[in-house]
Amino acid sequence: MKQYLAYFITICLMALSLSAYGLTLHDLQQQFSQYSVVRANFEQDRYINGLSKPLHSSGQMIISKQLGLWWQQKTPFALTLKMNDQRMSQGIGDQPPQVITAQDQPQLFQFNSLLAAMFNADSATLNANFTLTLSEKENQWHLRLVPKTTPLDRIFKQINLTGHQYLSQITIDDMQNDKTVIQFFNHQTKALTTEEKHLFD
């Protein structure tokens, strides 16, 4: 299940720059590509069958169109994930990072390429793989994605995105009847600093 963490994160990041109201799917997808860099803090709760309380974690993330994803979990333990279209590195605490390449896990990276289609307003690709429902309520937009192709339909039941100016929450219902809820806040879109660029090394 750990390898699907990257799936969850990628879905979140595709939607971190949505804004405005009365939107169509095309408008939303155009908004995905508005910013070159998006930063946010996150709070994540995983509701797992058999556990009385959710597993809670928190941290911060940066996504750069040029460099990829940097995701740093701070609590309950340190975890750093770095990802681009060819390479993913995950390190826990002071342990040496585990590196996965597109050659090692082509399915994972094909999934990332699929979601990257959102940045290009590729509605044909999205509609080919998901049943999409877009709605608005109480000054927020809601986008529901139900997978209709394999392997997505073997991993997820549905994915729900909710936001205002930016994505504020994603809820993932998986095929194991578990649920993951991730909330994003403190969004920033200024250019990367030199120090931040080194985080992707």
Rank of each mutant, 00 (worst) to 15 (best):
L69G: 02
W70T: 01
Q73G: 06
Q73Y: 05
Q73V: 07
A78K: 13
L79C: 12
L79M: 15
L79G: 01
L81A: 14
K82Q: 09
M83G: 07
M83L: 15
N84H: 08
N84C: 11
N84R: 02
D85T: 10
Q86G: 02
Q86M: 07
G91W: 04
Q98N: 14
Q98G: 07
Q107T: 11
L108E: 07
Q110N: 13
N112K: 14
S113A: 14
A117F: 00
A117I: 02
N120E: 13
A121I: 01
S123W: 02
N129A: 14
N129I: 10
F130T: 06
F130L: 01
L132K: 05
L132S: 03
T133E: 10
T133A: 07
L134E: 03
K137H: 14
Q140V: 05
W141Q: 09
L143N: 06
L145W: 04
V146W: 00
P147C: 09
P147F: 10
P147T: 08
L152G: 00
L152R: 03
D153C: 05
F156L: 09
F156D: 01
Q158W: 00
L161N: 03
T162W: 01
G163M: 07
H164M: 02
H164V: 08
Q165S: 11
Q165P: 00
Y166Q: 14
I170C: 09
M175P: 00
I182R: 01
